[in-house]
């Protein structure tokens, strides 16, 4: 007898594909936010599956802080070529040059917050009405209550206290002119699900997720990558370590993990044993208890 039961990864996959297709059906100008990190790579992979053998019917958007791991950009360009989709790059440098955002000063300066302006400007310029993102509810407490279809007003703002109820598989993407939606198909995935899925589907990921030698320095208990635009503070010194990325974001705020994990099995084992969340190394979340909520309300990812 056939057993009509799917494992958890196939159920999550099916749910995400349903949501991605729903976006293509309900919106006129969707876009897929792509950072080069594992979650957005899984998103691109799911979008490819959702419309196969047709191409993904919307472009990819990368908000580029200019402070990247070089490997991420190479990986991005290769993936875009393989998928045959258009890539739009929103440049934070241009936003700064135009005077629409002011660069933070000092050794802890980050362009993380500035991305919001670039993101909202790009959404407005291209008149995108839905931006698909790879955020998960398990990664940060302000995300735990976010909907799959998350409404944004004409200023791009999120009103967490006044969200539309979301029931069954019935998603309400209705909006007024000038408003848009953020859509999160990976809402129900955990970090472990992402890694298991990458393993199950053999999805290529940038090499920096695996162990490698790199010049790093330690700040507030977090290992950061040395780079030309990173200023060292007094007492900080560059060391060479075997590290890997657990998340990939802007290089100025992405903490690295001391690790020897060289393949997906070892990464899964490492995640299973770890006692720190993946955003534990993200300097952008450490600015205050409600750092993520405040950024999200303004229109952050």
């Amino acid at each position: 007898m056939v057993n009509y039961i799917l494992n958890h990864l196939k159920i999550l996959e099916s749910e995400s594909i349903f949501v991605i297709r729903e976006v293509a059906a309900q919106f006129e100008r969707p876009v897929l936010l792509f950072s080069g990190g594992k979650d957005s790579i899984v998103m691109a992979h799911l979008a490819k599956k959702a419309f196969w053998p047709a191409r993904i019917p919307f472009p990819l958007l990368h908000i580029d802080t200019g402070h990247n791991f070089e490997e991420t950009i190479l990986f991005r360009d290769q993936l875009v070529q393989e998928l045959g989709v258009k890539l739009i790059v929103g440049s934070v440098q241009e936003t700064i040059d135009k005077g629409r955002a002011i660069e933070e000063k000092g050794p802890e300066a980050s362009r993380n917050v500035l991305q919001t302006t670039t993101l909202l400007d790009t959404i407005e310029e291209y008149r995108f009405d839905a931006a698909l993102g790879g955020a998960r509810r398990d990664e940060e407490k302000a995300r735990a209550k976010e909907r799959f279809f998350s409404h944004r007003d004409e200023f791009g703002q999120w009103d967490p206290k006044n969200q539309r109820p979301e029931l069954w598989n019935l998603f309400n993407g209705k909006k007024r002119i000038g408003e848009h939606f953020r859509v999160f198909p990976l809402s129900n995935w955990t970090e472990m699900d992402i890694w298991q899925y990458i393993y199950m589907d053999r999805i290529p990921i940038p090499e920096i997720y695996y162990t490698h030698e790199r010049d790093v320095f330690c700040r507030n208990g977090v290992w950061l990558a040395a780079a030309p635009f990173m200023q060292l503070k007094e007492g900080e010194k560059i060391e060479r370590k075997r590290v890997r990325c657990r998340t990939i974001g802007d290089i100025t705020c992405t903490g690295l993990t001391i690790s020897k994990a060289n393949n997906l099995e070892e990464i899964i084992a490492e995640i299973a044993a770890t006692r720190i969340t993946e955003r534990g190394g993200r300097a952008d979340d450490k600015r205050s208890e409600a750092a993520m909520e405040d950024r999200k309300k303004e229109g952050y990812f």
């Binding site: 940060e140 209550k145 206290k161 969200q163 909520e293």
Partner: peptide, 24 residues
């Protein structure tokens, strides 16, 4: 407080909305 992440929830000590939690 693990999932009552919204500022208003923390200040008022209440849960406003459905919170999703995951374990395996």
């Amino acid at each position: 407080l693990l999932t009552d992440g919204l500022r208003a929830e923390r200040e008022q000590g209440i849960t406003i909305d459905v919170a999703y939690r995951y374990f395996a």
